[in-house]
C-alpha cells in the first residue's frame, strides 16, 4: 500500500486526545518490568538516568515516575545502547564461538524539577566481605583451571617455588637435611626382630 502524503495526517481510529479521561485510555495495571536508577555523578543534580525496558517510551517514563515515585519531570532524553559483539564460548574455550550481539539496553535521562544527589558509596565494605569474596573467587578459579585437560602439562609454579626456597635453605645451612621418617618422628627400630636375631646367634 502506498501511503499518500497529506498535510493533515489522518489520526488512527482509536486515537484519543491527551485530555481524554483515564478510563478511556489504555492503562497498565500490573506492570512486570523493572527500571533501575544509574549512578551519574557527571550529571547535574536535577538529572537522573535509568535503565528501562526497550519498549518503554518517554511518555511511559514520565507517567511511571509521577505515579510511582511522585517525581515531576521536565524533559526526558532516551538512548538505546548497543552492546558489544561477543563470542559464544560453550566450553569455556577461547575463540571458535559464534559471534553474537547481546540485546541492547535503553537508557533514559530525566530532567526533574527537584535536585537529587546520589548517596556516597560506603567506605567500609565489611558488610559485603569484599576480601573474602575475591579470595574465594581466586581459589575457585584456580580449582577450575586444574580441571582443564592441559593443566597436567603445565608446571606447578607454587611447588617449584617452594622447592627452590627449601633447596636454598639447605645449601646455606639454615636447615639440616633429615630423612623423612626422622622428620616425621617415626620409629623404624624393629626391636623384636633384632632381639630374636641376637638370641638365635647366642644359642
Amino acid at each position: 500500500m502506498v501511503r499518500r502524503f497529506s498535510k493533515f495526517p489522518k489520526k488512527p481510529a482509536d486515537w484519543l486526545p491527551p485530555t481524554a479521561p483515564l478510563s478511556m485510555r489504555k492503562q497498565v495495571f500490573l506492570p512486570e518490568f523493572t527500571i533501575a536508577l544509574i549512578r551519574t555523578p557527571f550529571l547535574a543534580p536535577r538529572y537522573a538516568s535509568f535503565y528501562v525496558p526497550l519498549n518503554f517510551n518517554k511518555l511511559d517514563m514520565r507517567d511511571y515516575l509521577k505515579r510511582l515515585y511522585g517525581v515531576t519531570t521536565v524533559s526526558i532524553r532516551s538512548f538505546v545502547e548497543q552492546q558489544k559483539i561477543t563470542r559464544m564460548r560453550p566450553l569455556g574455550k577461547f575463540g571458535y564461538g559464534r559471534w553474537r550481539r547481546p540485546q541492547s539496553k535503553k537508557k533514559m535521562t530525566v530532567e526533574m524539577t527537584e535536585p537529587f544527589a546520589w548517596p556516597e558509596a560506603p567506605k567500609d565494605m565489611a558488610a559485603w566481605e569484599t576480601e573474602q569474596y575475591y579470595k574465594a573467587k581466586k581459589y575457585q578459579d584456580h580449582l577450575h583451571d586444574q580441571q582443564r585437560p592441559e593443566a597436567a602439562m603445565e608446571a606447578n609454579k607454587e611447588d617449584r617455588q617452594a622447592f627452590e626456597e627449601q633447596a636454598k635453605e639447605l645449601q646455606d645451612g639454615k636447615r639440616v637435611w633429615r630423612p623423612t621418617w626422622q622428620a616425621l618422628g617415626l620409629n623404624y627400630d624393629r626391636t623384636a626382630v633384632n632381639r630374636r636375631s641376637k638370641g638365635s646367634a647366642s644359642s
Partner: peptide
C-alpha cells in the same frame, strides 16, 4: 557537596537507611 533532598521521590530506589546499596544482611 550537593545538598541532599530528604523527601525526594528517587529515594524509593534505595534501601530505607538511604545507603547507595543494600547490605546482604
Amino acid at each position: 557537596r550537593r545538598s541532599p533532598t530528604p523527601n525526594h521521590g528517587l529515594w524509593g530506589f534505595f534501601p530505607p537507611d538511604k545507603q547507595a546499596l543494600s547490605t546482604p544482611e
